[in-house]
C-alpha cells in the first residue's frame, strides 16, 4: 500500500544576501493513512519550512533544491500552479501557530470559513454558509450561530484556533498539517485544542502532521515521532519506543530537559555549507573523534526506529 505522504531526499536552501542557508538537508519520511506524526525540534531546525514545502509555500529566497514530495503517489513539486490550488486547503490543509494573525481582521469568521468552502466546492452561498456553521459546531465552538458573525478580534485565542481548524477541515482533507497549533495558547486551552485535533483526526479519517517543540504534546497525540535537528532527521520511531529508550543524544537531551530541567548546552547551528561532521557533535556529551570526521547515516536501531548517531547503542537513560 502506498503511504499517504512520502518525502524523499528533500533539500531546501535559502539564498540570502549573507550566503546560502541549508535549511533542510536530505530529509525523508513517510506517513501512512490515518496516522499522526509528530515532528519535534528547536526553533530553526527546519520543521516549519518542511511543512510549508508540502504545500509549496516556501517564502522566497527559499528554494527546493532536490527531492520528491509524493502525495498519494503524485509529486507535488512537479505539479503546475493550477493543480496546486486544487490540493491546498482541499486535500492538504494547514493550521498555523498564531491564530491571532492567521485570520483576516476585516471579515467575520463565518465568512472566512465559507470562503474556504467555496474555494474548492461549487456550492451556493447558502450551502457554504450552512456548511460553515456545521464546521463551527464540529470544532465545538459554543453558540456557533452567534459566533458565526463575529469578527476575529471578538474571539479568544482558543476560539480563533478552533476557527482555523474549522477552515482547515472545510473540504475533508486527507492530511492536516498543524504547525505549532498550541504554542500561542495558554496551557488549559492547549489541552482542549489537542484533544479536538485527536478527535477530529478519527472523525474525518485524516492523517495529521503535528509540528511542535513540546515533547509533552507529542506523547499525548502522536503515533510516530520524528526529531529534527539542523534540517536533518536525527531520530525517528514510534512514540512508545522513543520515549522509553531514545537512541540519539539529542532526543535524550530533549527528554531530560523536560523531565529534569537540565538544558542542552550550546545553540542550534545555522549551516551555511554542507556538513562534514555530525551537526550535533559540538553539543553532544558522547561526541568523539569519529563524530567530527564524518556525518553518521541513519541507523536502524529497532523495528521502525532509526537514529543518526554513531553511538546510538550507548545512549541510555
Amino acid at each position: 500500500m502506498i503511504p499517504l505522504l512520502e518525502i524523499k531526499n528533500l533539500t531546501i536552501r535559502f539564498f540570502t544576501d549573507d550566503g546560502v542557508i541549508h535549511a533542510v538537508e536530505d530529509f525523508s519520511f513517510s506517513l501512512p493513512k490515518n496516522k499522526t506524526l509528530g515532528i519535534v525540534g528547536e526553533s530553526g531546525s527546519g520543521k516549519s519550512v518542511t511543512a510549508l514545502s508540502i504545500l509549496r509555500l516556501i517564502p522566497s529566497p527559499g528554494k527546493i533544491l532536490r527531492g520528491q514530495i509524493l502525495f498519494e503517489g503524485t509529486d507535488i513539486l512537479t505539479l503546475p500552479e493550477s493543480e496546486l490550488y486544487k490540493i491546498r486547503g482541499n486535500r492538504i490543509s494547514m493550521i498555523f501557530q498564531d491564530p491571532m494573525t492567521s485570520l483576516n481582521p476585516l471579515f467575520t469568521v463565518g465568512y472566512q470559513i465559507a470562503e474556504a468552502v467555496t474555494a474548492h466546492q461549487k456550492v451556493s452561498r447558502q450551502e457554504a454558509k450552512s456548511r460553515a456553521l456545521a464546521l463551527l459546531e464540529a470544532v465545538k465552538i459554543p453558540e456557533a450561530k452567534k459566533r458565526f458573525n463575529a469578527y476575529p478580534h471578538q474571539l479568544s485565542g482558543g476560539m480563533r484556533q478552533r476557527v482555523m481548524i474549522a477552515m482547515a477541515l472545510s473540504c475533508n482533507p486527507s492530511l492536516l498539517i498543524a504547525d505549532e497549533p498550541t504554542t500561542a495558547l495558554d496551557v488549559t486551552v492547549q489541552k482542549q485544542i489537542l484533544e479536538l485535533i485527536a478527535e477530529l483526526q478519527k472523525d474525518f479519517q485524516m492523517s495529521v502532521i503535528l509540528i511542535t517543540h513540546n515533547l509533552g504534546i507529542i506523547s499525548e497525540v502522536c503515533d510516530q515521532v520524528l526529531v529534527m535537528y539542523a534540517g536533518r532527521c536525527v531520530e525517528e520511531g514510534p512514540v512508545s519506543s522513543i520515549f522509553r529508550a531514545p537512541r540519539h543524544p539529542y532526543t535524550f537531551g530533549l527528554l531530560r530537559s523536560v523531565e529534569k530541567m537540565i538544558p542542552i548546552p550550546g545553540q542550534l547551528p545555522i549551516l551555511k555549507e554542507s556538513a562534514v561532521a555530525c551537526t550535533f557533535a559540538p553539543r553532544c556529551f558522547l561526541a568523539a573523534e569519529k563524530c567530527r570526521q564524518g556525518e553518521p547515516p541513519l541507523f536502524d536501531v529497532e523495528e521502525n526506529h532509526q537514529s543518526r548517531c554513531w553511538f546510538h547503542d550507548q545512549v541510555q537513560i
Binding site: L55, L57, Y85, K86, I87, R88, G89, N90, S93, M94, F96, D98, T101, S102, L103, N104, P105, E115, A116, A119, H120, M164, M167, A168, S170
Partner: peptide
C-alpha cells in the same frame, strides 16, 4: 507578509482572490 495571507494561500485561494479580498 502577514500570516493570514499565508493562511489564505494554504486554503487554496488564488492570487487574484488574495490580492482583492485579503
Amino acid at each position: 507578509e502577514r500570516e493570514f495571507v499565508l493562511a489564505a494561500e494554504a486554503i487554496g485561494c488564488s492570487n487574484f482572490r488574495i490580492i482583492w479580498r485579503h
